[in-house]
């Protein structure tokens, strides 16, 4: 179903511009045209459809759902809602406090915040379009696992001790109280189709307006890698799946700050050029999920000690994920 974009790129790059598919420039340009048109098309259609479906989902309802769940399921739901809830990173702090002051454990709130930048509809659409459903599924499972396990570790070490005072007090007061009675999920606002359409249209404009540059930059980088780095270069020069390539990728990804949109097209090229899948994923997660702007924001509600702890937990998670996937990758992605 995506052939039309290949044909379009053939026509533009080879016929109209007159480049040969055998040249580096020709193959880069072809890649760039094919991927940008395909991704932008998919994004516009899917963001609209998904927004229609989730127009009535708001944070108050999400919070009530999570509160109702048993502790373990709380992590899974926290992470799952982090993936599907529309939410702008500038709302991290109010959201964090809204959860905390409702007595939701720190680890569950952080499972939400960890997963949120890694998995969102844009990332999923791009992965599916570029790398196929198998890889997309693996990415979702891994993204949620990073959030769930990160959250569990935080609670296991009683991370809430190192919240800022006002946040810790709000949490304790609420945790003591909510055990007494059950929480009711507020009813979904009744929306007409016209209201849903309006919401979806606004979402579409907002999201595409925000990410189109990232798509171009990401695909541009991916295209350059695609055309100018020989196939298998990484495998020859970095070794295939040596253990140190994973931490190296994590530390290389840290100072880079991108969202998932910018990094996924690069991932595609890295994998095709022979970088092991686990190493690539570790790089991607370090770029997307551990971002300094986010950490600076969280400083408003957390002490440095807690921030450092979160940082270390995340890094350790990325590395473990990288190693595991490199270990089982050949079996998991046979024929990829």
């Amino acid at each position: 179903m995506f052939e039309i974009f290949t044909l379009l790129a053939n026509w533009l790059a080879y016929d109209l511009v007159g480049l040969s598919p055998d040249t580096k420039l020709g193959s880069s340009l072809h890649f760039f045209i094919e991927d940008t048109t395909k991704i932008l098309f998919l994004l516009v259609v899917m963001i609209y459809l998904i927004a229609l479906a989730r127009a009535s989902l708001n944070l108050e309802r999400v919070r009530a759902y999570i509160q109702q769940k048993h502790r373990f399921m709380g992590y899974v739901f926290g992470s799952g809602f982090g993936a599907i809830t529309p939410f702008c990173s500038c709302s991290s702090i109010p959201l964090f406090l809204g959860f905390t002051s409702a007595g939701i454990p720190l680890g569950i709130t952080m499972a939400f915040l960890f997963t949120s930048p890694i998995i969102n509809e844009v990332a999923v659409i791009m992965l599916w379009g570029l790398l196929g459903w198998k890889f997309t599924l693996a990415y979702i499972v891994i993204g949620m696992a990073v959030g769930i396990i990160g959250g569990m570790i935080l609670d296991a070490v009683k991370g809430e001790r190192w919240l800022k005072d006002f946040a810790a007090k709000a949490y304790q007061a609420a945790a003591a109280e909510t055990r007494e009675h059950d929480v009711d999920v507020p009813e979904a606002p009744k929306l007409t189709m016209a209201e849903r359409h309006q919401f979806a249209k606004d979402e579409l404009r907002e999201i595409v307006g925000r990410i189109w540059k990232w798509v171009l930059i990401g695909v541009g980088l991916g295209a350059a890698l695609h055309g100018f780095v020989p196939d298998g270069w990484f495998a020859e020069n970095l070794g295939s799946g040596q253990w140190w390539s994973v931490p190296a990728a994590v530390f290389a990804g840290l100072p880079l700050y991108s969202n998932a949109t910018g990094v996924i097209p690069v991932m595609e090229s890295l994998i095709v050029k022979g970088l092991p899948v686990g190493t690539t994923l570790a790089f991607c997660m370090a770029t997307v999920a551990a971002s300094f702007p986010e950490f600076i924001m969280l400083k408003q509600v957390m002490t440095y000690r807690l921030l450092a702890m979160i940082f270390v937990i995340l890094l350790a998670n990325f590395m473990v994920v990288g190693w595991i996937i490199n270990g089982i990758g050949p079996w998991l992605f046979a024929g990829f």
């Binding site: 708001n58 109010p94 406090l97 959860f99 002051s101 709000a170 509600v301």
Partner: peptide
């Protein structure tokens, strides 16, 4: 101030 925003029980901003 996050504490004041919390006191208003607001979870999504701007509010």
């Amino acid at each position: 101030d996050p504490a004041k925003i919390m006191a208003y029980k607001v979870m999504s901003t701007p509010a």
